[in-house]
């Protein structure tokens, strides 16, 4: 955006300026101490002061807990604060990893953890694959010459903005015993199904729901990527007489690939953290059929009668390792995409 177009928003109306009056007053008030800092400590001091509030909050509520998390994972007992907790070494990790057979959760000491790991793994693989494919298809459809593209984009996008609780409740209402879906089945001559009581179906709907809620986001990124592909490439291909599928496989998809990589990694990172929608929809059930890692951490550490902070911390450290690896790859991929775009 150029400097010129920017100020369209910046120039408010009279009403806005009335609202801004107290803000202006406050800002002028801050000017005095800030000017003092500038005179006394120079630009370096000014920069530090500008950074201070954000970094303070950051330190207290992000960096400090991050390190604290590691410490907690080596302690045991029921106390909340670290100084009252007992050092237990790697006991928590050993507990989590104590399995006779890693493929059978029932053989593990902490079987709920392994069920959560298994569920999350299954969810990640299936959900990300389906999500990316559906988003790609939607983006390709929306990238066609069409009327009212804005409307159609909004149709697929708006669930992204809904809260997970709302999303879950919308579908819970449809999936309940007397819900719309069962009514439709009945109408078509099928038996109604108890969707959220059946283990397989519960997982299916957990995956379906998270795709429904998030596909608009990924569609949008892919659509932006598609629209960045120069039009003349398509025209050149048309002049070359290339059939449509060849245009798709030889021009569109290769040029979209950098965006695809970013989308896949973002989807992976989010899928590992799946919690909200599914928790409201199924509560992790039936049994442990839709119990995922975050819910395991939350319940083990905070929601049980007897809090096991140490175990939950150890589990979240293991999860963090996965996320850090994924995020690093994602950052590298983003940098790679940007470099590619500049060329």
């Amino acid at each position: 955006m150029t400097v010129e177009t920017r100020q369209g928003i910046a120039g408010g109306g009279h009403f806005a300026s009335l609202l801004l009056a107290p803000l202006r007053w406050a800002m002028n008030l801050i000017d005095r101490p800030m000017s003092f800092v500038q005179r006394r400590f120079g630009l370096g001091g000014v920069a530090a002061t500008f950074l201070a509030p954000n970094m303070l909050v950051f330190g207290i509520f992000v960096l400090f807990p991050m390190t604290l998390n590691v410490a907690y994972s080596f302690t045991g007992g029921g106390a909340l604060f670290l100084n009252n907790r007992v050092f237990v070494g790697t006991l928590q990790y050993e507990t989590l990893l104590a399995c006779r057979d890693f493929l059978d959760a029932a053989s593990c000491r902490e079987d709920r953890f392994w069920r959560a790991v298994g569920n999350t793994g299954f969810f990640v693989v299936v959900q990300v694959t389906a999500l990316v494919l559906v988003s790609l298809a939607t983006a390709l459809v929306l990238n066609r010459e069409m009327r009212a593209r804005g409307f159609w984009r909004a149709v697929f996008f708006f669930p992204v903005l809904l809260s997970p609780v709302v999303v879950a409740l919308i579908w819970k209402w449809i999936l309940q015993r007397n819900g719309l879906l069962n009514a439709a089945l009945l109408e078509l001559g099928f038996e109604p199904v108890l969707w959220l009581v059946n283990r397989g179906w519960a997982m299916f709907w957990a995956i379906f729901l998270s795709i429904w809620a998030h596909l608009g986001f990924y569609t949008l990124i892919l659509l932006a990527g598609l629209q960045a592909i120069p039009r003349d490439l398509y025209e050149a291909a048309e002049m070359d007489g290339a059939p449509r599928w060849r245009v798709l496989t030889r021009i569109t998809l290769p040029l979209l690939w950098p965006n695809m990589v970013v989308v896949i990694l973002l989807a992976l990172i989010r899928a590992v953290q799946v919690f909200d929608e599914v928790f409201v929809l199924t509560g992790g059930g039936p049994g442990t059929a839709t119990l995922f890692l975050v819910q395991y951490i939350y319940e083990t550490g905070l929601a049980q009668q007897v809090r096991n902070l140490g175990l939950a911390s150890a589990a979240s450290i293991l999860m963090a390792v996965v996320l850090i690896v994924l995020t690093l790859i994602q950052l590298l991929a983003s940098a790679w995409r940007e470099r590619k775009e500049q060329r």
């Binding site: 207290i60 991050m66 998390n69 979240s316 999860m319």
Partner: peptide, 11 residues
């Protein structure tokens, strides 16, 4: 956030 809920809770 989902990774640091435990220590954040104690903070």
């Amino acid at each position: 956030l989902s990774v640091i809920i435990i220590p954040l809770f104690s903070v």
